[in-house]
C-alpha cells in the first residue's frame, strides 16, 4: 500500500527559535494519526505546515493526488494548493468561529464548499446541506439559523459538516474538542469516530488531550521542544511509554 501523505524532514524556524524540526512520517489511507505534546511544543506549527497555512523552511509534504501521483504540496502553485484545500483536504479549527462564517446561515456555511467547486443548483445544495446537518446531529429546522445562535458544541459540529461535505480524503484537526465541556466532548468524539470510520477518512489530529487520541488515533506522535520524541501505535505508546516526557505525560492524566 502506498501512503496518502508522506512527510519528509519538515522544519520551520521563527527567526532563531525553532517551530518544529526534522519531522518525518507516512500516513496511510484510512489511518488516523495523533500528535500530542505540551503547549509550545510545535504541534500546531507542524499541522499548519502540513496544511499549507505556513511555509516550511525545509522538507517536503507529498500528497497522493486523485490520479495517483505523489505531489509536493509545499512547492505546488497556490491555486492548486487552494483547490486541494477545498476539495481533498479539510481543516477543523480549534475555535469554530475561525472556520465558520458567522454571519452566514448554517446551510450557507455547509453549502459554501459545494459552491466553491461549482455547484450551481440551489435545491441540490440545500438538500446536501440538510443531509450533512443531520449527520452531525443538527436538526433540519436550524438550517437557516446563523452559527451565532448555536452553542459551542453545535458550532463545532457545524464546522465539521462544512468541512466534510465535499468528501475530503484528508482531515487536519487542531484541538477539535478544546473548549468544550466533557459530555459535549464525548459526543463530538463519538461522532467524529463514526464519520472517520464510515467515510474511510485519513486524519491528523493535534491535541493535548490523551483521551482524544486514545479514542480516535491509530498511531501517535509525541512532540517535545519542537522535536518528535516518540512514535508508535497509540495503545503501545500510551501503555508502555519509553521516553521520559511521554511517561510524564501519561502519568499526568487524572484518574477519576
Amino acid at each position: 500500500m502506498t501512503p496518502l501523505l508522506k512527510v519528509e524532514n519538515i522544519s520551520k524556524f521563527y527567526g532563531h527559535r525553532i517551530g518544529c524540526k526534522d519531522v518525518n512520517f507516512d500516513l496511510y489511507p484510512g489511518e488516523v494519526m495523533g500528535i500530542v505534546g505540551e503547549s509550545g511544543s510545535g504541534k500546531s506549527t507542524l499541522l499548519n505546515c502540513l496544511a499549507g497555512h505556513l511555509d516550511p523552511d525545509t522538507g517536503e509534504v507529498l500528497f497522493e493526488m486523485r490520479d495517483g501521483a505523489m505531489r509536493d504540496t509545499v512547492t505546488m502553485s497556490e491555486p492548486e494548493r487552494r483547490m486541494l484545500s477545498r476539495t481533498d483536504w479539510a481543516f477543523v479549527h480549534q475555535h469554530a468561529r475561525d472556520g465558520l462564517r458567522m454571519n452566514v446561515s448554517a446551510g450557507g456555511n455547509v453549502g459554501e464548499r459545494l459552491m466553491a467547486v461549482g455547484a450551481r443548483h440551489y435545491g441540490n445544495i440545500r438538500e446536501e446541506a440538510v443531509d450533512w446537518l443531520g449527520r452531525v446531529e443538527i436538526s433540519e429546522t436550524r438550517v437557516d439559523d446563523r452559527p451565532t445562535q448555536f452553542s459551542g458544541g453545535m458550532q463545532q459540529r457545524l464546522q465539521i459538516a462544512r468541512n466534510l461535505v465535499t468528501g475530503p480524503r484528508l482531515v487536519f484537526m487542531d484541538e477539535p474538542t478544546g473548549g468544550l465541556d466533557v459530555s459535549v466532548q464525548a459526543r463530538l468524539l463519538d461522532l467524529l469516530r463514526g464519520l472517520v470510520r464510515e467515510m474511510g477518512l485519513s486524519a491528523i489530529i493535534v491535541t493535548h488531550d490523551l483521551a482524544v487520541v486514545r479514542l480516535l488515533a491509530d498511531r501517535l506522535m509525541v512532540m517535545k521542544d519542537s522535536h518528535v520524541v516518540e512514535t508508535g501505535l497509540t495503545d503501545q505508546v500510551l501503555d508502555d511509554p519509553q521516553h521520559a516526557y511521554t511517561q510524564l505525560l501519561v502519568s499526568s492524566v487524572l484518574q477519576v
Binding site: E78, G107, G108, G111, E112, M115, A116, Y122, R126
Partner: peptide, 18 residues
Amino acid sequence: SLEEYGLMHVKLYEDIAK
C-alpha cells in the same frame, strides 16, 4: 486573481434561504 467566486453564490444562497 485565483477566480475563486464560490462566495458570491453564498450571498445568493442566503437570499433564497431567507
